[in-house]
């Protein structure tokens, strides 16, 4: 892939803040349904597809800014938020501080989460995933070892990755990534529609 550098940049600088952004959306934009949030997040990553990322020094702030702009655009198109909420969105304050060290998840906690995720995978799927990521075997080697088709190995790995992405969506305790600031795990209000 030509774009591994971009993927790596997103992994290092953007993924860790996704949980925080989602929690912020849940807390402040109550009209959003969970699937609205998923859509917004996908749109936000889409904006990162072609930006000159090496110039971005504060990825977290940048991510929040994208989300805010998307909300405003959607509000103008009245897709998600009614017009009268537009002003409200403009008033939204992006949390200024990064989570303090005590709020950040330690490497050990991250690993424990990953272990839980791995433990929850179907047997074959788990084996393929472990062989790939922890034994650095190639697709072909895994296929030979497990006596299955390479295409099947890919399916298994995709399932495992899907679980990782699901975990990213959860805030606080459940997340694979690092947590957001200033939340006690759950959002005060649920979506209204």
């Amino acid at each position: 892939m030509q774009d591994r550098a971009r993927h790596q940049w997103v992994a290092t600088h953007v993924l860790p803040h996704e949980g925080e952004v989602r929690a912020w959306l849940r807390r402040h934009v109550h009209s959003l349904s969970p699937s609205d949030i998923d859509d917004l997040i996908q749109d936000a990553y889409a904006r990162l597809w072609s930006v000159e990322f090496s110039h971005i020094t504060n990825a977290r702030g940048y991510l929040f800014a994208i989300i805010r702009n998307l909300l405003l655009e959607n509000a103008r198109r009245a897709r998600i938020v009614p017009m009268e909420r537009l002003g409200e969105i403009e008033m939204l304050r992006i949390p200024s501080e990064e989570p303090g060290p005590d709020r950040r998840v330690s490497a050990r906690q991250e690993l424990e989460r990953l272990e839980r995720m791995v433990a929850g995978l179907p047997e074959q799927c788990r084996r393929a995933f472990q062989l790939q990521k922890f034994q650095c075997l190639s697709q072909r080697q895994i296929a030979l070892k497990m006596n299955i088709a390479e295409r099947t190995v890919e399916k298994y790995l995709a399932i495992a990755l899907g679980r990782v992405l699901d975990a990213l969506k959860q805030d606080g305790e459940g997340a694979m990534g690092r947590p957001e600031s200033g939340t006690n795990g759950h959002v005060s209000k649920q979506s209204t529609d």
Binding site: A11, V14, L15, I41, R47, M176
Partner: peptide, 19 residues
């Protein structure tokens, strides 16, 4: 564009697993 967004996010998460 959302395909691109989802692909970027999934790729990043896949690479982060190496860390």
């Amino acid at each position: 564009p959302r395909h691109r967004g989802a692909f970027l996010r999934a790729s990043a998460a896949w690479m982060d697993l190496d860390r």
